[in-house]
Each structure stands twice: as structure tokens, then as C-alpha cells.
Amino acid sequence: MLFTHDAEVALASAAALVNTQANGPRSVEELPDVAALDAFVESWGWTGERRHDDLELAQVRALRPRLREVWSSDVDGVVRIVNDLLARAQALPQLVRHDGWDYHLHATTPQAPLATRMAVEAAMALVDVVRAGELSRLRVCAADDCEDLLVDLSKNRSRRYCDAGCGNRVNVAAYRARQAAAD
């Protein structure tokens, strides 16, 4: 394991959150309503209080562009974003244990707004990325027509494509091109 389990989950969920935003020719808004946000929160196991309203949805949507900046920033830019996210949330790191997870860090209360908890979890995980000098593991999908983000947690740093099937699509297109050239 490169990072702690909670950091890896926070990084993956931050990338997944950003990838819900319509970005590029093939993508659509994947958080069109509160029900979609509820499904996203459930799929990633977010805990704590929820409002289940349009304001909460708007706050979570507003977080996505800020997190996307991380994937295209140098280390100083990432540090500025991380420090800003932590300062705005008045983060106070503390060890907690809940829902079958052993001790891990939370830096907000369970009553903090969902978008604040998401921002701080991502920021805390990014602290580990910066401290480990592993910023190169935060990537944009290598497919020409995809701008989704990914976190490369592979041992050999070889992950190039997002989870949207781009790797398979690119490989099939390359195979077909080789077959056409051979004919």
C-alpha cells in the first residue's frame, strides 16, 4: 500500500467526484440532482450528517473545479489549494474509529456540511501525496477524447486510463488499426 487506506479512498473519491462533472465531448453531468448525489455519497461510504437538498448539491458541485485544479498544478499550487481548503474548513485533525474502519484521521466534525467534509478529506489525502513526493500519481486519462482524472496507485506507476472504459476502447481501436493496416 502506497498511502494509508483512508488516504487512498479519499484520493479515489476526489477524482471520482471531479469526474462527475460534464467535461469534454463524451461526458454528461453525473450529479444532476440530489438523488444522484445521494447515490454517489452512498457508493463512496461518506458518513456524517446530510441535508439532502439543492444547497448541499450546489456546494458539492462547486468543489469539483477546485479539486480538478490539483491534477494540473505543480507542487506549490497543490500546497496552496490544500492549505486553502483546510483553512476555510477550520480543519482540526483528530483520530476516529467508526463503521468498521480502524483509527484514521478526520479533520471535521460529522456535522460539518458534506462539501466541507469532502474538501477536507481530499486535502488531508493530498497532504500525504505531497509529503511523499508522489504528485505524479495524480493523472488525467491518456485517451485523446477523455479528460477524466485518475489516481495511479499501481506499484509500477503504469496506470494511464480512467475507469470509464477508455483503456479498453483505445486498445480495441489500436488493434483494429493494426488489422486494417495488415489487410
Results as ranks from 00 to 15, higher is better:
3 F>L: 06
6 D>R: 13
8 E>T: 08
15 A>F: 03
18 V>G: 03
18 V>Y: 07
19 N>T: 02
19 N>K: 01
20 T>S: 11
21 Q>D: 10
21 Q>E: 12
22 A>V: 04
24 G>Q: 02
25 P>V: 05
26 R>A: 15
27 S>G: 11
28 V>D: 14
28 V>H: 10
32 P>C: 07
34 V>D: 10
35 A>T: 07
35 A>Y: 06
35 A>D: 15
37 L>G: 08
37 L>A: 05
38 D>M: 05
40 F>E: 05
40 F>Y: 15
41 V>W: 14
44 W>Q: 02
51 R>N: 09
53 D>K: 05
54 D>V: 08
55 L>K: 01
57 L>R: 04
57 L>W: 11
57 L>Y: 12
58 A>S: 10
64 R>Y: 12
73 S>C: 08
74 D>C: 11
80 R>Y: 13
82 V>S: 02
82 V>A: 07
83 N>V: 09
85 L>K: 11
86 L>C: 15
88 R>Q: 14
89 A>Q: 14
89 A>N: 13
89 A>R: 06
90 Q>L: 08
93 P>D: 03
97 R>A: 15
98 H>A: 12
99 D>K: 00
105 L>C: 07
107 A>Y: 03
107 A>G: 13
109 T>E: 12
110 P>Y: 00
110 P>T: 02
113 P>A: 11
114 L>D: 13
114 L>G: 13
115 A>Q: 09
118 M>V: 02
118 M>R: 03
118 M>D: 09
118 M>L: 14
125 A>M: 07
129 V>T: 03
130 V>H: 09
133 G>M: 12
137 R>W: 07
138 L>H: 03
138 L>M: 11
140 V>D: 04
140 V>Y: 01
143 A>I: 01
144 D>S: 12
148 D>P: 00
150 L>C: 03
150 L>G: 03
152 D>V: 07
153 L>A: 09
154 S>N: 06
160 R>G: 14
162 C>H: 02
164 A>T: 04
166 C>L: 01
166 C>W: 00
168 N>Y: 03
169 R>C: 10
169 R>T: 12
170 V>I: 10
170 V>S: 06
170 V>L: 02
172 V>A: 12
176 R>L: 13
176 R>H: 11
177 A>H: 13
178 R>C: 12
179 Q>G: 09
180 A>W: 00
181 A>N: 10
182 A>Y: 00
182 A>M: 07
